[in-house]
Amino acid sequence: MDNERLTERIRTLVPEAQLEENKQFLTLVIPADKFHDLAVNLKESEDTLMDYLFCLSGVDMIKHLMVVYHLNSTKHGHSVELKVKTENRENPAFDTVSDIWQAANFYEREVFDLFGIRFNNHPDLRRIFLDENWQGYPFRKDYVDEVNIVDL
């Protein structure tokens, strides 16, 4: 499926999806509450079959927190980049996709650990790299640690 048809497809499922222009992949911003259903649909439908989640990154865009999903179909070969955003910095939460792609299990734990984004219904949401009682989320832009982060 080429990018235009893929966009159309996602638009029919989630009309609010915004297309971002001039990107390497087809990039769409999806409202957080619609994302899980869309993901299920993209994975299960025969013509999209996005079965390979090859990258899941958390990003702190200062204005908002964002999680970026890179999806690929190993059968059809098309890729898509989906973004979900939240402006809630205190208690950001998205729905997990680890029930759809098992790979997301660890990726989401990493994002939770470093960005503090919670994933609802995640089976085992614990810190993965840092200590259990670590304060704060180090990869956020406003994180301050005068002891461990040395500015050169």
Binding site: C55, S57, V59, H70, N105, E110
Partner: peptide, 29 residues
């Protein structure tokens, strides 16, 4: 597969650089 995902804001340093490292996802299995 090693992926490098970079968000740049036009500066000489990346705004965010994420490495999708193969071992991390291999460990999950």
């Amino acid at each position: 597969e090693l992926g490098a995902y970079c968000i740049s804001d036009g500066n000489k340093t990346p705004f965010r650089l994420k490495f999708r490292s193969p071992n991390f996802s291999n460990l999950g299995v």
